[in-house]
Amino acid sequence: MSFEAILGLGQTAAELGLISALTVLALFVSYSMLNVCDLSADGCFTLGGAVGAVVAISGHPYLSIFAAMAAGMLSGFITAFMQTKLGIDSLLAGIIVNTALYSVNIAIMGSLSKGGSGASMLNMNKTETVFTKVKELFAGGPLGKYNILIVAFIAVTLAVVFISLFMKTRLGLAIRATGDNADMVRSSSINPKIMTVIGLCVSNSLTALSGCLLAQSQKSVSIDIGTGMVTVALASLLIGGAFIGKHKKIPLRAIGVVLGAIIFRLVYTVALRFHMPAYMLKLISSVIVVIAIAAPYIKKKYPEFARRISHKFSKKAEDGQNA
């Protein structure tokens, strides 16, 4: 394999890593800060892709990004509304929204064709997007083939800066405290329900942005573009967390999360080179998530287990002597 080919693979991994890092940052807000496991991320990712595609195909490359984010925000608002006002468990609310979004996404993708039938796929081969715009901008220059990397890098940088600044404001503090101790938020005369709503709106707008950028960079969107995104992103989040640690400052943790996403993609790309079939991605993500969450628990429980075993054996030995 030539050096250039390796570089090319590395570039693709970095592109995908950076774009999915936006979803990982979204989970950083909802899962790590707000302590809500938002399972609507799969559907919301696809929603971002669908809305972004439809608006871009209609001829608005820049607006498509904001439209996708707004759609994600709305989806986050609905999930949060179910949790805080309708008494639906947060996991269930995510699953319900996710399921509903399947229909919504097909309807959105079908909205361009006449007759009102849905579509589960849209092509953007000739569509103008931010990626093609940047490509034109650097056309002929050495940066031309890095258009996806440039756009993704800018988006991730903005997201990291935004999260870092936002989490320092009073609103950000209140959102973090809601995930940490809702009682304390209430006694500071802040409504934790509103904090949950705002947090999920922010988080889901990032997820949708991620979906929008992935779809536009691949020049197509399909209904299953977001399938398994929660688990994949959670795996990246936990990898990033393992590198940086929990008690560091927010900006550092946010950067760690982005690194986690990129590392995940790099490892995945390497695994593909070693003839791992592409469909294994989701199985591997699941295993990583299980290991990352279970490891601390098992580590804590291990002494107990060891004690039980040694107790059993010493007892047996004693019985043996007495016999």
């Binding site: 009073r170 973090r176 405290a177 940490d180 101790n181 304390m184 938020v185 500071s188 008690h247």
Partner: peptide
């Protein structure tokens, strides 16, 4: 444990309480 957020700093807790 009920009156403060354990994973946030003293400063951040006070900032929220001061409001």
């Amino acid at each position: 444990m009920r009156g403060s957020a354990p994973n946030m700093t003293i400063e951040e807790n006070l900032a929220l309480a001061a409001g």
